[in-house]
Design a protein around this nucleic acid. Structure first.
Length: 535
RNA sequence: GCGCCCGUAGCUCAGUGGAUAGAGCGCUUGACUACGAAUCAAGAGGCCACAGGUUCAAGUCCUGUCGGGCGCACCA
């Protein structure tokens, strides 16, 4: 490098997986990038590079192609070692230490406890949970947290709704004059039924507006517990359910305003206290204490986020709904104003889902009481398919969810394609074990057909895919990878006999199949999706 | 008006500044007396919304235009 005047170019050496077959197993465009600095034609530089390339046993061949690409072909025998690596610890293959134990707090879902979980919460749940699993595999230390908005006006309003439903149970007509803005959804009836069973001593007739506060807290806790249950069924659990009410009881909102004031970012104007978020690129300052002396909803949130850093997390990731994106700038401003590293806060906006049924858009509105609950979706499509669909696309792009398609238990449904490959291998191994197997010594060198080689390369890529998905917070890379792996196995399977092959080849192909099954199972587990033994 | 997301095959979408832009579905044609045909193989199908710019190289980066989705508060 130095000989060629290429000091400081080291970081430009990037080895990547080629986009096309026939370009080697690995490729680098280094010569093209560095040609200018080397004052040499790219091809010439690539040729020199090839000459200097040390004799790495893993590399069988180095080839210069096109305008100056350097393509590497890996030694097949070396490559086949991946099968042994997987088999040594099938459940742990793919793990890495790129996270270096960095403490990550992942907050997601955080739905208001004023109604059932809707589908967009399901998307956040699937994305957040998968990301947590992926990051853990990549060596991060991840905590999952659900922030419960169990305080504020909405809780009193929820209490109001509960009171009306209790009145209704005692025969009173509440429907003809249902107040605007009070949650009209039927789910409050179920809460009322539970309340009546638990508190027979509270006659509904005696309840008044003065009771809405504690009724609301009862209802909020009831609905939160329901969220917890539904999410558990969805395969998602949290390390902590962080209550906004407890945060208020500890007077953290007051403290955050004081801390910001001490740093000179609070200003009084028009009888209100404003946070000078414009100092950090926000387009306007934000009210924290209203002119009537109460806090805006932003204050507890600011306190909550500052608290995350106070609790010692190195990296704070929020998954927020699309209705919060105007909110990101000011949250970041708080973090920066308090002197925490602004890069340590990452906010992902999980974009909206449009549900299609029979080609028509299903309109959802919590206020109108007309929505599709996550639970209904799980009943219709199953947990595996629902999770797969939610994680298949980049979280930050809006998606259409075709209810008819997700319900289809057919080849149209991509999750079955992956699971089918695994089920095939299970079946194969069952038959092998049932056949009084005659073991042959394992010699992986015989795995040299193109279909086998393709599988070896793909298996070897798995740890990198997991690491990249974690670093880029891109869980959608896994479904794509698993589809590739399953596809390559299906192709291999149609092309080659396994049990009927000669003993040495049979043994190697069985080992390869076991490794593929292990990675499919592990990869699906990263997404919270099962690998059935039979379908 | 401002901000965010998105315009790529008939449809749904991949694409890390690099080679001839890919996959699934749908369509056409083939493959089981065969370890699971929920599979495989082959084919047709593209002004990468448009216009400029940066670069040896742009679907990818920058600017603008057009089209679609969502959001703007001393509400939560």
């Amino acid at each position: 490098m130095q000989d060629q005047g290429l000091d400081g170019q080291d970081s430009a050496i990037l080895i990547e997986t080629p986009t096309e077959r026939g370009h080697g197993d690995l490729t680098s465009s280094f010569a093209l990038k560095a040609a200018r600095a080397a004052r040499m034609a790219p091809r010439q530089l690539a040729d020199r590079l090839k000459e200097w390339w040390p004799a790495v046993p893993a590399v069988a061949e180095v080839e210069v192609a096109g305008p100056g690409f350097v393509n590497f072909t890996l030694n097949t025998r070396w490559l086949a070692e991946v099968v042994n690596q997987v088999r040594i610890a099938p459940a742990r293959y793919g793990e890495s230490q790129v996270g270096a134990g960095r403490r990550v707090l992942l907050e997601f879902v955080s739905s208001n406890p004023t109604g059932p979980l809707v589908v967009v919460s399901g998307r956040a749940a699937a994305v957040g949970d998968s990301l947590a699993r992926i990051m853990q595999a990549a060596g991060f230390s991840v905590d999952r947290e659900f922030y419960v908005n169990d305080a504020g006006n909405q809780i009193a309003t929820l209490g109001h709704a509960l009171r009306l439903r209790l009145w209704q149970r005692s025969g009173r007509d509440v429907l003809t004059d249902w107040p605007d803005g009070v949650y009209p959804g039927d789910y409050v009836k179920a809460v009322a039924a539970r309340f009546a069973a638990e508190h027979p001593e509270r006659a509904p007739q005696t309840l008044t507006e003065a009771d809405d506060g504690w009724l609301g807290q009862y209802a909020a806790e009831s609905l939160r517990a329901e969220h917890e249950q539904v999410l558990a069924r969805f395969g998602v659990t949290f390390d902590r359910w962080f209550s906004e009410r407890s945060l208020r009881e500890e007077r953290l909102p007051e403290q955050i305003v004081e801390r910001l004031a001490a740093r000179g970012f609070i200003e009084e104007r028009d009888g209100a206290k404003w946070f000078r978020s414009t100092a950090f690129g926000d387009d306007k300052d934000r009210v924290m204490v209203k002119s009537d002396g109460t806090y805006t909803y932003f204050v507890p949130d600011a306190a909550y986020h500052a608290g995350k850093f106070d609790r010692g997390y190195d990296w704070v990731i929020d998954l927020l709904g699309p209705d919060h994106h105007g909110y990101v700038r000011r949250l970041r401003a708080v973090v920066e104003a308090l002197g925490y590293p602004p890069d340590s806060l990452d906010v992902m906006i999980v974009q909206l889902i449009r549900l299609l049924r029979g080609g028509e858009i299903v309109r959802m509105s919590k206020r109108g009481g007309n929505f599709v609950a996550l639970e209904d979706l799980m009943d219709e499509a199953g947990v595996d398919a629902t999770r797969y669909f939610f994680v298949e696309r980049a979280p930050e792009t809006p998606m259409d969810f075709d209810l008819d398609l997700a319900q289809m238990k057919s080849a149209d449904n991509p999750v079955y394609y992956i699971q089918y490959a695994g089920a095939r291998i299970h079946s194969l191994l069952r038959q092998w074990r049932a056949s009084e197997p005659a073991e042959a010594p394992l010699n992986l060198d015989v795995l040299n057909h193109p279909a086998e080689r393709a599988l070896l390369v793909t298996l070897a890529r798995f740890p990198d895919v997991v690491a990249r998905a974690a670093g880029e917070r891109a869980p959608q890379l896994l479904p794509r990878y698993l589809t590739d792996l399953a596809g390559e196995y299906h192709a291999f399977y149609r092309q080659h006999r396994i049990l009927e092959a000669e003993p040495a080849v049979r043994q190697a192909r069985l080992a390869l199949s076991e490794a593929v099954l292990a990675v499919l199972t592990r990869g699906l587990a990263c997404l919270g999706i099962s690998q059935p033994e039979q379908m």
